[in-house]
């Protein structure tokens, strides 16, 4: 009885690791093949458009609103202590260190990750990947690799755009609406936000999230059970697992970057 339980737990853990192993092999196969820039670059550009440019709207709108809400909430707390001039750094730091990378990661998983999984899963179920293989064209290189690089390239940029627009939103509410002095807002933010500690660390976070989210999305699609059911499950898995991975990794990274 107990032995059985151990056995099944063991098998589950083993399966998990085998899955991660397979996923890594797939990733390496896709990325470290001989790159062919003449053919690869146009594919990459197309995916940057699909994955990145088409995510711009949701990223910009979310950034704006989160920045505005942040300023509003921050103001109501800070004003009680007469510290409303610190609103600038508060908004800037929260966005650059945390909300930019994390919220972008979550939105990216929902917007682009799910689309990647569904697209590749459907290509698999309609035998497009098989027929590519039979044409002696490696789908890992032709289909998976450009999408991975595009995800890796776009997400940090999206996170920077998110933070920038968020700060602008904070400015709108804090300065234009609530009447904080614009000079204070910007100069205190400038003196408190450090290029390496805050901006770079935020970018590093978003690079890590980009790798994880895109990787999960591609792996789930490529290994989806090729049926309607299987693809819908794979898509859900992508969003859930990628989001959890972003949140979990964010904690770990935050401990390392800002914990000490």
């Amino acid at each position: 009885m107990i032995l059985n339980m151990f056995q099944s737990v063991g098998e589950a853990v083993f399966d998990r690791f085998a899955g991660v192993g397979r996923a890594s092999i797939m990733l390496f196969g896709a990325l470290f093949g001989i790159p062919n820039f003449r053919k690869g670059f146009p594919l990459f550009v197309k995916q940057v458009y699909v994955v990145g440019v088409q995510s711009l709207t949701i990223i910009m709108v979310s950034g704006l609103f989160i920045g505005m809400v942040l300023a509003l909430q921050g103001y109501t707390v800070l004003v009680d202590y007469g510290a409303e001039d610190s609103l600038g750094p508060m908004v800037g730091l929260s966005l650059l260190r945390e909300l930019g990378p994390v919220v972008t990661g979550l939105l990216f998983a929902g917007r682009a990750g799910s689309a990647l999984t569904a697209e590749i899963g459907l290509m698999k179920s309609t035998e497009q990947l098989s027929s590519m293989e039979m044409m002696a064209i490696d789908p890992l290189r032709r289909v998976v690799a450009p999408r991975f690089w595009a995800g890796l390239f776009c997400m940090p940029l999206l996170a920077i755009i998110f933070s920038t627009i968020g700060i602008f939103g904070g400015h709108l509410v804090g300065v234009e609406w609530l009447g904080i002095d614009a000079g204070n807002f910007w100069s205190i933010m400038q003196s408190k936000v450090d290029l390496v500690d805050d901006v770079f660390n935020g970018v590093i976070k978003s690079i890590v999230f980009a790798i994880v989210v895109t990787w999960i999305a591609l792996y789930k699609g490529y290994n989806a059970i090729p049926t309607a059911d299987g693809i819908s499950k794979a898509t859900t898995d992508t969003v859930v697992q990628a989001s959890l991975a972003v949140l979990g990794l964010d904690f770990v990274l935050t401990v390392f970057m800002f914990g000490g």
């Binding site: 290509m123 497009q128 027929s131 039979m134 044409m135």
Partner: peptide
């Protein structure tokens, strides 16, 4: 091996039952 297999496949071709056109 994978690499050799892809090389050999350049000499073959398959019409899939479903057609499998790139959509």
């Amino acid at each position: 091996g994978r690499k050799k297999l892809y090389q050999v496949r350049q000499d073959m071709s398959m019409l899939f039952q479903s057609g499998a056109l790139f959509t």
